[in-house]
Simulated scan of single mutants.
Amino acid sequence: MSVDRLSDPAVRAFVAALNAGDRRAFREALTPDATMSDDGSDRDLDQWVEQEVFSSRGHMDVESEKGGGRDLVARYRNDTWGEMRTAWHFVVEDGKIARFETGQA
């Protein structure tokens, strides 16, 4: 599924920035106090994003969406872990991502 077809504009901005490796646009897609979890454990968002996305060239290929576009299944790959099928859940507040949760699907 192409990024521009994602239903939720905040999720679309998040995925587009992640895939472009655009730190500034990625940060702008999030609320200032955004949080996240990976495989059920809360993580430091800035540290996780740097390690799992930007320094390892992370990329999401979305397979499907539901929940108004706030729940995705995607093939996620980076230089550290290779590719895996992942599930993503997003909480959106005022048009920005306030929390995202990811893990293996």
Rank of each mutant, 00 (worst) to 15 (best):
M1T: 11
M1K: 04
S2L: 13
D4E: 15
R5E: 14
L6E: 09
S7Y: 06
S7P: 10
P9M: 03
R12T: 03
R12F: 04
R12Y: 02
F14C: 01
N19L: 08
N19Q: 06
A20P: 08
A20H: 07
G21H: 01
G21I: 03
R24N: 10
E28G: 08
A29G: 07
T31L: 01
D33R: 12
A34Y: 00
M36T: 06
M36W: 03
D42W: 06
D42C: 00
R43P: 02
R43V: 14
Q47A: 14
W48Q: 03
V49Y: 02
V49F: 04
E50L: 03
E50K: 03
E50A: 08
V53K: 08
F54S: 07
F54H: 06
S55P: 01
S55D: 13
S56E: 11
R57V: 07
G58S: 09
G58T: 10
H59D: 06
D61S: 13
V62K: 06
S64A: 15
S64N: 10
E65H: 00
K66D: 14
G67W: 07
G68A: 03
L72M: 02
V73H: 14
A74M: 05
N78D: 07
D79T: 11
T80L: 15
W81G: 04
W81P: 01
E83K: 09
E83Y: 03
R85V: 09
W88Q: 11
H89E: 15
F90H: 04
V91H: 09
V92S: 01
D94W: 02
G95R: 11
R99C: 05
R99M: 06
T102H: 01
A105G: 09
